[in-house]
Nucleic acid binder design. Structure first.
Lengths: 205, 205
DNA sequence: GCGCTCACCATACAGACGTATGGTCCGGCG
DNA sequence: CGCCGGACCATACGTCTGTATGGTGAGCGC
């Protein structure tokens, strides 16, 4: 199992190497869960040796933390771009919410990775903090949209909207008996936005 | 580490023993995740030997499957009881939805177990099927309530409602920055029911 | 009393895991 | 030219995992 090594390949700087390893790792997690994301499997899939992985990430915890941060950063960045490019507040919110649904392979993979990390985050405080802050950023992004749409309580609206999308995502991921189709999930999001984005009427407590 | 054994204890029949082991296992999963749920840890926590666990569950997969089925059955049973006892359709739906939120220690533990199993269910088809059918039963129970409330599309309403509760649960579980409090989550559920349970107006496609 | 079975035990085993160690090869600096 | 550090390698180590194996004592039918 000797690996051909391109010594001091000038094309690859350390940060890029780390990013590549993280990206391969995330693919492994998406396919086989965190159980399948061993250092050996990562080395194999990336075509490098165990030592190479160790060289770039001192411990596995550091590796996992980097990978998890990466997913959060990716999602946040995409949400911001969607928010910036959208023509209306509703389109921005809708775009961000649909990003949470497994509507194509990429989004499904990200969802699987997210779920795997969420499970781990329950027992690893460091990951829990990252997840909490990721959720916070997502909520903030959505709240911005709801605020632009002049909704009375933008944060509450964002909380509810992302909760709905998140829950729909798990139902799509584990489709069974009369589980919703992708179109029905999108319709559910649209229906929610219909009621959430009209001038919110005041109700009695 | 010799364990005192009560030979042929007449109080304990095999099924009861299995149930007890499953219950101890679920506590382990809730506390330490599936990574902490090893056969040795289970044997220790239950005060029996490794062999005893093996005697009641041939493999670990069988053990995990039993445990997972147990959680699903528990939730379904509770949902049904809540549905039966509720005075109004709205109360039934609300009660089931609140059962999905981590409002006390028991419900938080069940949620942690559910999340851990969901992550595993992504890579283990047998668990995935159980999860899918559990989600289906939950949806059916809720749909019954929505049907009783004369909602136009009970299944869609159930899908959306459980999605919302599920998403709120994860936000409560990983509370961060401006995450919702338990009260706010309940308020979000109530708000959702307010709009979901009024005579649904027809919208254009 | 004698097997039989059931429930349970202690221990052993092979494999996989994360990590540590020592080496090799390269570009670049003095 | 010598050497130094970075990138990478092969391998070894100890631990932990699920599982297999053989044994032991209690109750019970005969």
């Amino acid at each position: 199992m000797h690996t051909i090594q391109l010594y001091c390949d000038p094309m690859v700087d350390p940060a890029e190497r780390r990013a590549e390893l993280v990206s391969v790792l995330l693919r492994l997690v998406a396919e086989h869960g965190l159980e399948g994301a061993t250092i050996r499997a990562l080395a194999d899939a990336a075509g490098v040796s165990i030592g190479a992985v160790q060289h770039h990430f001192r411990t596995k915890d550091e590796l996992l933390l980097s990978a998890f941060r990466q997913t959060g950063a990716d999602l946040t960045e995409r949400a911001e771009r969607i928010g910036r490019r959208a023509l209306t507040a509703r389109a921005a919110i809708r775009g961000i919410l649909l990003e949470l649904l497994p509507l194509d392979e990429r989004r499904e993979a990200e969802l699987r990775v997210g779920l795997a990390f969420a499970a781990r985050a329950m027992t690893v405080p460091a990951l829990g903090e990252v997840l909490a802050s990721d959720l916070g950023e997502l909520r903030a992004g959505l709240a911005e949209g709801f605020a632009a749409a002049k909704v009375a309580d933008p944060v509450a609206a964002a909380t509810a909207a992302m909760a709905l999308a998140d829950g729909l995502a798990t139902q799509l991921l584990f489709a069974g008996a009369d589980a919703p189709t992708a179109d029905e999930a999108i319709a559910a999001v649209d229906r929610h936005l219909d009621t959430a984005l009209v001038g919110r009427r005041r109700r009695r407590a």
